[in-house]
Simulated assay, not measured.
Amino acid sequence: MTENMIRVAVNGYGVIGKRVVDAVRAMPDMVLVGVADVIGDWRIRTAVGQGIAVFAATGQGEAAMRAAGVPVAGSLEDLLGVVDVVVDTTPKRVAATNLATYRAAGVKAVFQGGEAHATTGHSFVAQANYASAVGRDMTRVVSCNTTSVVRVLGALQDAGLLARARGVLIRRATDPGESHLGGVMNTVVPEASIPSHQGPDALTVRPDLDVVTMAAKAAHTQTHNHYWTLQLTRPASREEVLEALRAAPRIAFIKMTDGLAALNTTVELMRDLGRPRGDMWEVAVWEDVLAVQDDEAFLTYQVYNEAIVVPETIDAIRALTGSVPDGPTSIAMTDQALGMRREFLPVLDQAVTGA
């Protein structure tokens, strides 16, 4: 470990936490000091098997870990005493209760989208507002769906093309690993209010967006699906809209004509590409579905809820510590280390394929 590496702790080794841990360990400028949790089951035992130092977030948690035979390196306070920044990936509304502990330890803190914007006073998506997070004590990486909204709509806004956006979100019922605990079965449950929370949440990052979202929860567990009707600032071509999306980071393109015709096919593609856990960090836009009519655009894309916020979290770490003051530089570092793509499939030689 070199002196100038960012020392990182992760509090909560669940769906997001374990992915953040792997990403931190993949970064050339970061070192994972340890993880904290309150359980001693298979999840934390996998961390022990990877040689990760495990700390107890609470006294009760320590007792449970030791009873399960988990080697406990110390308390959460011990861990905070030797790091520069902590990433809190504990369950929704739990993280806010940890804020006083982080402040007392004098460490920077990255929260996740389950917490309210007011918890940190700053919400984060790297391509949109990296600079405003530099040197702050804390920030909140917005939710998976909000991250996708800011990436896609922000790309069109930056290109001067977006006037307003109206979107419908079909959300997965629960995480795949929790399917046995209950969830939506054989039905679709509309959210009880319009707008759904994602539109207002996007405004915490890009206040000048004109966006309204509606959402429903469906009986599936693999990823979210968005449908957008976009009012453009002027008549534009389909290629202009695609070029605006191509100019932005962390947006990739898939095609129905390649057989990627449904959410599960893209999940399978990620596995075939050798992605860890089959994760997709990019927003996957269906290129051949996107349509433009005069000054309106229509598109649909896929959001891998378990992974999309991971690269944003890595960039938030750099921003808070000030180690990389430039957003595009941090984004490029993260994307290269994770192996993110703009196109998932190779471009084939048309002469060879006979097309």
Rank of each mutant, 00 (worst) to 15 (best):
216 A>E: 14
90 T>Q: 01
116 A>G: 03
159 A>M: 10
145 N>G: 13
217 K>S: 13
199 G>E: 04
144 C>P: 00
169 L>A: 06
166 R>S: 10
157 Q>S: 14
95 A>P: 00
165 A>N: 02
199 G>S: 08
217 K>C: 11
102 Y>W: 11
100 A>F: 07
203 L>M: 11
141 V>F: 14
155 A>H: 08
106 G>I: 06
128 A>G: 08
161 L>Q: 07
170 I>H: 13
95 A>Q: 13
176 P>F: 05
114 G>T: 05
96 A>T: 09
196 S>H: 03
177 G>W: 03
90 T>R: 02
192 A>R: 13
138 M>Y: 06
118 A>I: 09
194 I>C: 07
102 Y>C: 02
208 D>C: 06
85 V>W: 04
149 V>W: 07
143 S>R: 04
83 V>R: 07
154 G>Y: 10
140 R>H: 04
104 A>F: 02
105 A>F: 05
152 V>C: 05
118 A>Y: 14
205 V>F: 03
208 D>K: 14
141 V>H: 09
201 D>Q: 14
198 Q>N: 09
95 A>F: 03
166 R>Q: 13
163 A>S: 13
146 T>F: 07
157 Q>R: 15
78 D>N: 15
112 Q>G: 06
128 A>I: 09
130 Y>D: 14
114 G>W: 01
179 S>Y: 04
196 S>A: 15
100 A>N: 10
92 K>F: 04
121 G>Y: 05
142 V>G: 09
86 V>C: 11
83 V>A: 06
187 T>P: 00
132 S>K: 12
76 L>F: 04
142 V>S: 06
144 C>M: 14
96 A>R: 11
120 T>V: 09
170 I>E: 12
191 E>Y: 14
163 A>G: 06
76 L>T: 13
98 N>W: 11
124 F>W: 10
110 V>D: 04
122 H>C: 14
120 T>G: 05
164 R>N: 06
89 T>W: 07
76 L>Q: 13
154 G>K: 00
207 P>Y: 01
201 D>A: 12
195 P>I: 01
211 V>M: 09
86 V>Q: 00
187 T>R: 12
128 A>C: 10
161 L>A: 09
124 F>G: 11
110 V>E: 02
122 H>Q: 15
174 T>H: 06
190 P>I: 02
133 A>P: 00
90 T>A: 10
103 R>F: 10
210 D>L: 00
156 L>F: 10
126 A>E: 09
184 V>G: 03
111 F>D: 01
130 Y>H: 15
185 M>A: 11
92 K>M: 06
213 T>V: 02
203 L>H: 01
78 D>W: 01
186 N>E: 12
176 P>E: 12
118 A>P: 02
82 V>F: 04
182 G>S: 12
96 A>Y: 01
98 N>Y: 15
207 P>L: 01
195 P>A: 07
170 I>T: 06
160 G>F: 07
86 V>D: 03
152 V>D: 00
177 G>I: 03
180 H>N: 12
184 V>N: 03
169 L>T: 04
